[in-house]
Amino acid sequence: MSSVIAIVTGANKGIGRAIVRNLAVEYSKSIYPQTTPKLVIYLTSRDVSRGMATLAEVTRELEDKKVLEAEGGPAEIRFGELDITDSTSVNNFKKTVQNVCGEVDILINNAALGTEFQGEPFSYEVVEKTLKTNYFGLKNMTELFFPIIKNPGGRIINLSSGLGRLAALPSKSLRNQFSSQDLTQEQLDRLVNKFQNDVRAGVYAEEGWPTSGMNKAPWTIAYNVSKLAVVAYTKLLARRLDKEGIMINTHVVDPGWVRSDMGGENAPLSVDQGAETPVYLALTQDKAIEINGQFWNKKKPIAW
């Protein structure tokens, strides 16, 4: 029996966990089951014990929904060990998925690091490890999995943040460089590396990078730039796919301020509300998704 294959990175908690659960619930309501009766979701985590515990919890939560295969529904959830910052880990997981499933229909890049939200002071080390996961890790995962993403019909959905808007950059020159329609992958990588180097040299303010984060607090600077780079990468990737005639839908999402370990208990949105737009983009047949590289919030394209 043919299956739709979905991968959700960083799915052991927060929005990632909610995306897995809601993919299972919403799949039966979509038009996919008419042509492809089964959905296989890979819930991935670099921490095996946490990932397996989350899988067990989500399975229990979905029992009364009758959406899992064991209860007669269309969805099956599997655990996958995955560290997106480690190319060996990504390649090993890719081989597993390819051997079992062949192609991947949906890749949702959710895995992210935000130690600044837990109070870790801004530093070069924070910048380095934040970008390693949020930008370089996401790009690494996408590029290594790209050869087995279904063409035509595959979907790549990258999670960014409202904190990753162009307005986060004080410098007009930097805003223009990140948003340029001619930006290349090499240039984007150089911009990201320049931010790291400018922080290490103590000249990031003079070079036009943010000096404050959310609500003007002196934190989340690394997170903001990492998520801005995710938007730029998604738009760059979309242009590349369009130019090469590759029919894979590629979008980036601001899920909103969500009550999670990162967003905190005062955030206005639940994790399920944060998962709405990524799940929508994964399953919708809305023609709007055919315009690649859009920045989405509340199931609608928005300005970056």
Rank of each mutant, 00 (worst) to 15 (best):
S161N: 12
G245P: 04
K29P: 02
V225N: 08
E103H: 10
D272E: 15
S171F: 12
I31N: 15
T220C: 06
P210A: 09
F146L: 14
E69S: 08
T88H: 13
L228V: 13
G72Y: 09
A11R: 10
K13C: 05
T59A: 09
R155L: 00
E26S: 05
R239C: 02
G208C: 04
N158S: 12
E71V: 05
A201E: 12
P37D: 15
T220K: 10
K150Q: 05
N197L: 14
T234H: 08
P210E: 11
T85K: 07
K132I: 03
P278Y: 07
K298P: 00
T54L: 01
V225K: 12
W219F: 08
V40E: 06
N134W: 09
Y204S: 12
N158P: 03
L174A: 04
Q196L: 13
L191K: 10
P170D: 13
G16E: 05
E186P: 00
V67C: 11
G256T: 07
E61C: 03
R21C: 06
A24N: 01
E186D: 11
E265M: 11
T142A: 00
K299W: 06
G256V: 07
K216N: 15
N215D: 12
V97L: 01
L159S: 11
N292G: 13
P152V: 00
K29V: 08
A11K: 10
E81W: 01
G114E: 14
